[in-house]
Structure formats: structure tokens, C-alpha cells
Write a protein that binds this DNA or RNA. Structure first.
Length: 227
DNA sequence: AACCCTTTCAACCGCAAGTAA
DNA sequence: GTTACTTGCGGTTGAAAGGGT
């Protein structure tokens, strides 16, 4: 048996929200809250929308203190740092940027920041230094890694290498299933690195730039501890 | 002015996790 | 423990806007 649809797709409106719909949703939630049930909310307020759509509209656009566009250089660097460290965990990244939504950050990264970073144009000495020393080259000097990372996880490495299927450290080829000691603390396997599945995440390369905003990320706890 | 291509971003989709019965 | 349902998330889509020719 397949999953029941969350709403009757034939009888819900889709596409852009009208100002009237926005006003109805906003007024109701500000007065009553969501009632703990998004699915039943649209019926309560007479909106022909899916509950998921209402939730998304509220979270990404209508709720108070939302900021749109105009990302600061500081926000750019926080996003880059976290992305390099933990990958596309947009909700975790958004939690570090008050007023920003995961959707906004995801869009911003996909459309602008990625190009900016990969184009090596970010005005951060540390980021520039790091990528200058590790410019998607098949060879990454161990010293350069150690100077920026306490250790290095698979996603991290994968982003730095931008899709290369294998690479070498100090001329040592890392292949699938071939464990290498990266930092004196742990071993990573080549396939873990390439697939981004290593469980031990790391002190991000650029964290020191941000006053230690991110020192350790615990993948099983879904939070970032500040040290 | 008209067309085409690229970029942006709001919204949708499907899946996994969480939770109540 | 199982099932049904809701919530939250990341990936993807597509319409609109912008820019170039």
C-alpha cells in the first residue's frame, strides 16, 4: 500500500500565493498559531492550499523577522565555511544565520555563492589561501591541510576536490577502500572520502576567521557545539 | 522591438524521521 | 511492535525577470 497523499491534489490551489491568501494565513497564525497541525489549517481558514504549502509559505516568507536577499560578506563567509564543513545541511546552516531560511540560503548558494567560491573570488584571506594552496589540484600538500584542518571529513574533501574521483596527498594515491591517515588523529578511507560518508566531522578550515563560530559538528546530534 | 539565453527564487516533490494511536 | 499520519528536509522545477544580440 502506498503512502496516502497529504492532500487532495485535485482540489488544492498551486503556484504563487496571492496577497489575499498571504493575509489570511498570516492573520490566522498570528492570532491562533498553527494549532499544531498544518494539514488541517487551510480548511480552518478557508484556503484551498495544501498544508505543506501553507507551512512553507509561513516559514519562508510570512513569519516575522525574515530577511530576503542582501547577504552580507560576513554571512557569505559563514555559509561557505559551514558548507565546506558539513555540506548541504541547509537547516543547520540557517540556524546559524538569524532571519535567514534554509530555502533562501540554498538558493543563494546554488545560484551565486557556489560560483563565487569556486571562482576563487571570495574576499577572505583564509579561504583564498586555502583554495590557492589546494586549487582543485590532484595534489594537496599535507602541510596545507594540517594548517587549516584538525582533521578532514569526506564531504569536506569532496567539496574541495569538486568531484574528482580520486586524488593524491603528497603524491600518495588514495583509491577506493584505501585508508590514509590525514591528520594524525583518524583514518579515512578513499571511498568514504569520495562518497562523503566519513562519520567524523571536523574543525572547518576557515573557522578561525569567524571567532570560532564553528568548532565541532556532531553528525549524530544535529547541532553544532561552540567551543 | 523582438527574440533568445541565463539567472533568480518561490514553490513543489518525494523521502525520512518523528509521533500518536 | 505496527500502522497511519504529520512534519521537516534537501533536491528539483518552472515562471518571471534581466541581459545580450
Amino acid at each position: 500500500m502506498g503512502r496516502a497523499p497529504c492532500c487532495d491534489k485535485a482540489n488544492v490551489k498551486r503556484g504563487p500565493w496571492s496577497p489575499e491568501e498571504d493575509a489570511k494565513l498570516k492573520a490566522y497564525i498570528q492570532q491562533h498559531g498553527t494549532g499544531g497541525n498544518w494539514i488541517s489549517l487551510p480548511q480552518k481558514i478557508g484556503l484551498k492550499r495544501c498544508g505543506k504549502s501553507c507551512r512553507l509559505r509561513w516559514l519562508n516568507y510570512l513569519r516575522p523577522n525574515i530577511k530576503h536577499g542582501g547577504f552580507s560578506a560576513e554571512e557569505d563567509e559563514i555559509i561557505c565555511s559551514l558548507y565546506v564543513s558539513i555540506g548541504s545541511r541547509w537547516s543547520v546552516i540557517a540556524a546559524q544565520l538569524p532571519g535567514r531560511t534554509d530555502n533562501d540560503i540554498k538558493n543563494y548558494w546554488n545560484t551565486r555563492l557556489k560560483k563565487k567560491l569556486l571562482g576563487n573570488k571570495l574576499q577572505s584571506p583564509t579561504v583564498n589561501n586555502f583554495f590557492n594552496q589546494n586549487p582543485y589540484s590532484p595534489e594537496i600538500p599535507m602541510d596545507a591541510l594540517n594548517s587549516h584542518c584538525s582533521n578532514l571529513d569526506g564531504a569536506n574533501m569532496q567539496h574541495i576536490l569538486e568531484g574528482q574521483s580520486s586524488f593524491s596527498l603528497q603524491n600518495q594515491e588514495i583509491g577506493y577502500g584505501n585508508p590514509k591517515r590525514l591528520d594524525g588523529m583518524e583514518f579515512l578511507h578513499g571511498d568514504d572520502i569520495v562518497n562523503g560518508t566519513s562519520s567524523d566531522l571536523v574543525c572547518p578550515p576557515f573557522a578561525s576567521e569567524y571567532g570560532g563560530i564553528l568548532q565541532h559538528y556532531a553528525p549524530d546530534q544535529d547541532h553544532i557545539s561552540m567551543l
